[in-house]
Amino acid sequence: MNSIVQRNIIRAVFILAVQLLLLKRIDITFESFNYIHFTIYPIIIALLPYKSSKTLVVLIGFVIGLFVDLFYDSLGIHAAACTLVAYLRPYILNILSPVEGYKKDGLTAHGYGLPWFLSYVGIFMFISLFTLYSIEAFSFVYIKEIVLRSIFSFLASLFLIVIGQLIFNPKY
């Protein structure tokens, strides 16, 4: 039990470090095409143990989002998106429930297989990114930009996450 908590903390610190020190600086722009932003930190919330209390997940989501906001200089935007997706996490898990139910605590590719992991993280990331860019624009006047940005960032971020998952292949 203790090792799971430790593991999650270490993972959170690592992913946040990568996100804020490395990915934040990457800026892929081709003329007017600037829709790719690497955003992987919501995976911290997705990979929290299955048995974590809903309230705790929501709180953790808020804290992580706020922490990212401090670095992105956008107080509240990432926090709002993270809180929403953290709240929706149990419902996403419900939809994707395997036939035999969730037997293992770690929601990883190691535990439930890559296809399940892909669909889970895919839904999770897309919701969080779409919310994030919607709140960033703060008006559905920019719906085209929001959708384009969500899709391209989603693909890029998912690519990174899957690579990370394959490299580290964590049990929890």
């Binding site: 929501v58 808020f62 107080l75 509240g76 709002a80 703060f138």
Partner: peptide
């Protein structure tokens, strides 16, 4: 969730 989202909205 609702309390935190309200707080976020306020911050935003």
């Amino acid at each position: 969730f609702i309390i935190l989202e309200c707080l976020c909205f306020y911050l935003i």
